[in-house]
């Protein structure tokens, strides 16, 4: 098996190959000692590399093909998932999944983008690019949760809403807009976790909630770096510069007051240890859900509004001249 490494992880790939080669040798004490030393070197190399990732490198980690996605989190954090299909208008969008599940003994609705893992699944899931029906299904099922007073947990991981003819014909913009407005008033706790790519309106369309959490190496951006580079630099190759300029990393979002908390990831990214990654999400999610659930409706909804209302701060993001 080829080591599952990114282009900037050359130093890691080399060590992984050495470990693989050793694994093929007959098991001896000397071999095991050598493997152990390689593993130690792997960990320290990873730690060093991941301590100072560039924004573009973070984009690559967020898009890593083996990065744990919605289905992985459902399997590891929830039990008894029962998927609910369709928007009752046009179709069932496969890029967004929604269903009932149990989380620490409590019934919750889980909603999220799905990108798919192998080629067949990726095509089935449209690579996580949701059509209008996906946003409408999300809201329809969230209303069910509201009606029966069940909390909602949302996982966000999409490159963007699907930019195609049928998307436009069936009003993808309207679908997202309605979600932004109506999720603000949903009378039940809503916890959002940006777990991979927070791709613009396609991400935000299911990401209005009481708490917005973001995994350490996830990204959240107004436009993909490639698109930004093509428009502003007129050169898609300037994606590295664009990724830096857009301030799309979790620490950037936290600093700007646009997310509430960063969920740490295993060294080397969630894909290197999905079990540990899920455990880290669990810790923060469980706490956030408990805290938000303790609030009465008016307080919770008032705070949700204020949270988004205060995005864009006087004296930090803009000034009032002539006052």
């Amino acid at each position: 098996m080829a080591p599952d490494t990114l282009e900037f992880e050359e130093s890691i790939a080399v060590i992984l190959k050495e470990i693989e080669a050793l694994a093929l040798l007959p098991a001896t004490e000397a071999r095991d000692r050598q493997m152990e030393s390689h593993r130690g070197r792997l960990e320290s190399t990873r730690a060093q590399l991941y301590a100072s990732l560039t924004p573009w490198q973070r984009v690559q980690v967020a898009r890593h093909p083996s990065r744990p996605g919605f289905e992985d989190f459902i399997a590891r954090l929830f039990t008894g998932f029962l998927e609910i299909h369709g928007d009752r208008r046009f179709a069932d969008d496969h890029a967004v999944m929604s269903g009932f599940a149990e989380y620490h003994g409590e019934r919750v609705l889980v909603v999220g983008h799905v990108k798919g893992t192998d080629t067949k699944a990726k095509i089935h899931r449209n690579f996580g690019y949701a059509r209008p029906e996906g946003y409408r299904k999300a809201l329809r099922t969230m209303r069910l949760a509201e009606k029966f007073r069940r909390p909602i947990v949302v996982f966000v991981d999409t490159p963007a809403a699907y930019p195609g003819i049928e998307s436009e014909e069936r009003g993808v913009a309207e679908a997202i807009a309605v979600n932004l407005r109506d999720m603000m008033l949903l009378d039940t706790p809503v916890i959002v976790i940006v777990s991979g790519e927070g791709g613009s309106g396609g991400a935000l369309g299911i990401a209005v909630g009481d708490r917005v959490l973001m995994q350490e190496f996830a990204i959240y951006s107004v436009i993909p770096p490639e698109g930004c580079a093509a428009i502003l630099w007129r050169d898609p190759a300037k994606k590295v510069e664009a990724a830096a300029a857009l301030k799309l990393t979790a620490p950037d979002l936290l600093k700007a007051g646009l997310i509430d908390e960063i969920v740490p990831e295993p060294v080397g990214g969630a894909h290197t240890d999905p079990v540990a990654a899920a455990r880290m999400v669990d810790e923060v999610l469980a706490r956030a859900l408990t805290e938000v659930s303790a609030l009465d409706s008016d307080t919770r909804l008032g705070r949700r509004y204020e949270k988004f209302r205060n995005m864009g701060r006087v004296g930090i993001d803009f000034v009032e001249e002539g006052r």
């Binding site: 932004l180 407005r181 959240y220 107004v222 857009l246 700007a256 988004f308 209302r309 995005m311």
Partner: peptide, 19 residues
């Protein structure tokens, strides 16, 4: 949304829709 203000611009969508 204005690219030069990044995700801050994106969030104005939610802010206005909330209002």
């Amino acid at each position: 949304a204005r690219m030069m203000e990044g995700a801050l611009s994106l969030m104005q969508m939610a802010k206005i829709c909330g209002a």
